[in-house]
Write a protein that binds this DNA or RNA. Structure first.
Lengths: 122, 122
DNA sequence: GCAACAGTTTGACGCTCGTCAAACATTAGG
DNA sequence: CCTAATGTTTGACGAGCGTCAAACTGTTGC
């Protein structure tokens, strides 16, 4: 048994209000931004830009996201791999995830038109 | 002075997390559904399908929505007229409102194929 | 085995939230 | 004026949330 998943609501059991409530927190929104790449992520706060938070706090937030149906957690050995349930969310709330992710990443499109004189975010 | 508005964040001051937090409550989501028609609505619980709630509770919920930038409240005499800030929300979070409203009204498109035997919502 | 690792669970703390009830404006009508 | 109508504000209460710290579970590697 190397591919078990932590308990989560099934696709049509995902409730919109529960999703919005889960996402109505800055930390969990940051987590969503991390998961937006579609890849699997560990739970270590340092891998998530959340150094300032205790690991039990991060664990709590990830449980909230999972129980709301936003994420899925795969258990492999002593690691947990968390990923976004994009297909399920898109099926149940078409366009919602796209709108959310587009809204929280507004500082990217210009693609570095600067003359490389002073990199602003090294 | 008959067209004053209660304090509200200006368009670019609307925060996504605050909006999601405001909408992460069943009562406020119901209010959003009522406001989806774009019209102005009174604050009376009985006009909003919220008979079971005290008017002060409804007043509180509407304050939360307004302070999050979701709604706007116009004061006219002893009435308050609340409406959705659709243009501002669409400008700041394109597609979000449409996705939300589409997701919470999944029982309408068939256009009443019933034999009109029992009108469900008189 | 055993110690280090990756997360979870439990308990505690302060803070916020949703709700009601009562008191308080402010306006409209007789 | 006095009263009714429409909401808002304040105070109280219980429930839930976000955070940390410490104890715990299960896994990997030596």
């Amino acid at each position: 048994m190397e591919d078990e998943r932590l308990p989560q609501p099934d696709s049509d059991g995902i409730d919109l209000v529960a999703v919005l409530h889960a996402l109505g927190d800055p930390v969990r929104m940051r987590l969503l931004a991390s998961y937006a790449d579609g890849a699997e992520h560990s739970c270590d706060p340092r891998h998530l830009g959340l150094d300032h938070l205790h690991k039990s706090t991060v664990s709590h937030h990830m449980r909230v996201l999972r129980e709301a149906g936003v994420t899925s957690t795969r258990v492999a050995g002593r690691n947990r791999f968390v990923s976004l349930r994009r297909a399920d969310l898109d099926a149940r709330f078409p366009g919602l995830l796209d709108a959310l992710l587009a809204s929280l990443a507004p500082a990217e499109p210009p693609a570095a038109a600067e003359p490389a004189g002073e990199p602003r975010t090294p």
